[in-house]
Every structure is written in structure tokens, then in C-alpha cells.
Write a protein that binds this DNA or RNA. Structure first.
Lengths: 264, 264
DNA sequence: TTCTGTGAATGCGTTCACAGCT
DNA sequence: AGCTGTGAACGCATTCACAGAA
């Protein structure tokens, strides 16, 4: 760090921002993605502790319940601020609040779900939305036969009302629970209507502008990743004398493969 | 690298494995996790190309449809072998086969779903299981009122039969779609019965032995991550003159917070 | 010329280990 | 004495950029 920065900043090493950045900000907004992805896990653990009336907790104990190691947890929380007390630990209630605030859960977010099939209904009925913070404002579908159905206290609306719903209900997050073929079109309409966060359950890669966040949840991808590891475990089960034989046959193309460009 | 290693290895830098490892293996099994997680996406794109009768594809084009950049795609595929042709691209059919084989999809995996609520039924009805490779062998529930229900051609069985089902159906992957409170117990029973891959939809951290793989799918975590980014976008919308005022109030504890250990 | 495969450079995330506060 | 907060080291993942095959 330069001598200039040292003399300007409150205490050395507190601020990671390059000296060229002169914008004052509410502490360091540059929280690593990996940390953001774990904050909800910490929050859930903290809420459970809170309900059980536990007033403080050490990084070691909280890390155990959250399924991470304590160094990682401390580093993660340090990105939010110095909210612990050395020699003691973290105040549970206070930390619940700080994490909630950082995640934006001190305000409510309205969610619209498109697709009132099995999955859409499951999502709409899923009550415990991260202990509040989210409100299912609408459930939409293209099929006239399901429009009007009552699901989780909501009446299913027709997809053609999407733009109106986004406007009227101030939808922040769009959830896509449609068949793959419809997903991109629904996404486009969400984006066009001004939605900038999309949660996609359809097995397709969505194309969106840079300012739109998409997260995907994909059952078959998860199963395939598990299958990969399962296969690896099984491979390990065979004795070393088998490996060579396996290797000899492993590259064989399946019955009916084209003349292969096997270049090695 | 030591002089010893340099003289022993076939060619410099070709082999990443430590010289102590002498086990011959079917090419390099050490495929990075990040790569494994993307292979299903590539596979889906390739299958779509295959169905459309497209014989070859460049890394650039395949990367675009998979939503990654081409350098990453080429590096990923290079972990499987040299399956491309310089100046041409990849043979679609051949690559479909190689990726499928790497993921373990040339064999079938039996899956048991525990929890026949909205989500469990949605999963059971979800037909396109990554274009085959997986077979829903059983759907189990603890509620006597739903046991016997027909879902996706399966009769819901009682949870007490879990061990028998795992044995009889040779279950490789257990899916947990129960309420949070039941998840750990179901998981323990899966593990005890010999299942070593678990896909968990319940909002809890599961404790399992090291040899068991767990992947979790958590709706509310996904929403919270989106909320974080949504909030950040909104923060950016206010002019710089607001930032300081926001900063002054940002740390205020909520109404009813305990006397805070605010240490700074 | 075109496009793959891959070393090298860079960046990000995790873990270690300990200074410093309570 | 106990526990947080954090530099420093490390390892993994991504990106760059180009040698070399077709």
C-alpha cells in the first residue's frame, strides 16, 4: 500500500479498494460470490440458534452447524464487518440481523412463478421461504385449463397478463418452472417487463442482458454429477489387476458409432 | 521440479501426478470438480445438436450454446482426451458418447425418492431425466394416507420399506424431498442401507460419512442470493450524494435489538 | 487458414497460523 | 485463556495467447 493511502485511510489495511476509487461506500460492498452463497446457510443456522434462545456462539460451533470450517466462516463474516467479540464469539440476534440486512431480507421481495405444473405448484406451496423476505405474488400458466385453479391461496393467471402482473405487483424475481421449450420466451418477457433476477428450473441455458442475474436449478445435472462420483467409487472397487483390461476397452465406441476421428 | 523428477518423467510437465503414484489408470481420472459440473451442460447441448443432425461443431459454437467461453470449454474437454480435430472441430456423436461415458451414463442408475409431497411428486413426474440414465425405482413416504397413491406409474411405498427397497432395487442415489425435520433421519437410513449418493432438497445441512456424496438443492438459498444482487443493483441506483446518509444509518440495529456489542 | 490443445499468467477461494483484543 | 480478525501461503479455476495439427 502506498504512503499516500496509509496517511489518508483511518487505519492501515482496513480498506482493500485501490486508491483511485474515491467513491465513499457503506463499507466494502465487494463481498465475494462464494461468501454470498454461504450467508443463507449461516443465517439458517443462526435463526435456529435464536429460536432455541442461545445468546452467543463461537465461530467453531457455528461453523460446525453450518457444515464449513471455522476459518472460512470467520473470513466470510469479516467481509460484513467486525461483528464478533474476541474471547466470546458472536451475538446471535445481532448477527441474524446483520446477515439478513446484507442479504437484503429486511425488505420484502415479490416473486412471480410461471408454470403451474407439478413443480410450479410445489414451489408455490413451499411455505418456509427462507423465514420470510419473499412473497409469492402470482402464479401464471399458458394452459387455459389450469388458469383459475387455486394454488396456495392464489388463483392461477394467464401468461398473457405477465407484463401487467410484473408492473402491478412490483415483481423483483421471476421464477421459471415451465417446460424447456417455453423458458427462453418467458424469460424474455420477464426481462422486457423489467425483471432483473431470474430463477430458472427449466433445463436450458437462458440468454439475458448483462444486468440480469440468472440462477439455475437443474435436477438432472445434479443427478449426473452424482453419477460421475458414484462411477468413480465403483471403479475404485475393482482390483488394480482389472484396470488395464478396463483401459483397453474404455475407449471403444458404442455399437453404431461413426468412423471415429480418434486422434492419438 | 527436482532434477530427479525431470529425469524420470517421460516428458517434462506432461504428467501432473506425483512420481510416487505408480498405479496405471485409464487416462487421467483427476477431472476437476468445476469441469464435472459443466459436462452435463455440454452433453445437453450436444444431444440437441445430434437431434438436429449436425455432424461436427467448433469449440466456439458449442461454447456459445452451452453459455461458457470457448477457452474454458476446450480446457474442460481436454481433460477427457483429445477428441477434437484441429481445423475442424468436434464430432458431435462421438463427443456425446465420450461425455456420457465419463459421466457414467452408459449404465443405468436407480433412484429412490423419499417424500411424496408436492416436490416428490414433481420430481417423480419429471420425465426427461437427462435423456435417460436414471430410473425412478421407488417413491416412499411416512404418511399412511399417501402410501398406495399412484404417482408417475409408481405406487407410493411406506418409509419402513426403505432398506428393502434399496436392497431389492439396487438403489444408487437417494433423493430426499421430505420436510426439514425428517431429512437427517432419512439420510441416515439411506447411508446405513448402503447408498453413497444423496440429493437433498430439504433445507438442512446433512451429516454423512466421508465416502458419501451429498448435493443439495435449496430454493430459499437461491432466492436469497438473488435478493442480495437485486439489492446491490438498487443501491447503485441512488446517487452518490445519498451514500453517506445511507452509511450513517446502515448499522442501526432494528427496533428491539439487544444492547449491541458493536465493536469498532 | 482454421481451430484444437495447452503452457503460462492471472485471479479467486481456502486454509493456515498467529497477532491482538476481551 | 479464549476467540476473533486477518495477513500470507497455497491450491484450484479461468483466461490468455499461441504452437502446431489438419
Amino acid at each position: 500500500m502506498s504512503a499516500l493511502a496509509e496517511s489518508v485511510l483511518p487505519t492501515a489495511d482496513q480498506e482493500r479498494t485501490p486508491v483511485t476509487s474515491r467513491t465513499p461506500r457503506p463499507r466494502d460492498r465487494g463481498i465475494p460470490e462464494a461468501t454470498v452463497a454461504r450467508l443463507p446457510v449461516y443465517l439458517r443456522a443462526l435463526q435456529s440458534l435464536s429460536e432455541r434462545g442461545i445468546p452467543t456462539i463461537s465461530s467453531e460451533a457455528l461453523a460446525t452447524t453450518a457444515g464449513v470450517n471455522s476459518a472460512k466462516l470467520r473470513k466470510d463474516l469479516s467481509h460484513l464487518g467486525s461483528y464478533g467479540t474476541r474471547g466470546v464469539g458472536y451475538d446471535v440476534e445481532y448477527l441474524v440481523y446483520q446477515v439478513s440486512r446484507e442479504l437484503g431480507l429486511t425488505q420484502d421481495w415479490s416473486v412471480a412463478i410461471v408454470g403451474a405444473g407439478n413443480l410450479g405448484r410445489a414451489l408455490a406451496n413451499y411455505g418456509g421461504f427462507g423465514s420470510r423476505g419473499f412473497r409469492i405474488a402470482a402464479l401464471l400458466d399458458a394452459d387455459p385449463n389450469v388458469v383459475g385453479d387455486k394454488v396456495a391461496g392464489l388463483s392461477v393467471r394467464h401468461i398473457d397478463t405477465l407484463e401487467n402482473v410484473v408492473e402491478a405487483e412490483d415483481i423483483s424475481i421471476g421464477v421459471i418452472a415451465t417446460p424447456a421449450a417455453a423458458a427462453q420466451r418467458v424469460c424474455d418477457r420477464f426481462v422486457e417487463a423489467g425483471v432483473t433476477s431470474v430463477l430458472n428450473f427449466a433445463p436450458v441455458v437462458l440468454n439475458v442482458p448483462d444486468d440480469v442475474d440468472v440462477r439455475k436449478v437443474d435436477l438432472s445435472i445434479e443427478l449426473q454429477i452424482l453419477a460421475f462420483h458414484e462411477q468413480r467409487k465403483a471403479d475404485g472397487d475393482v482390483g488394480p489387476e482389472w484396470i488395464e483390461a478396463l483401459e483397453a476397452s474404455a475407449d471403444d465406441p458404442p455399437r453404431g458409432m461413426p468412423p471415429t476421428p480418434r486422434n492419438i
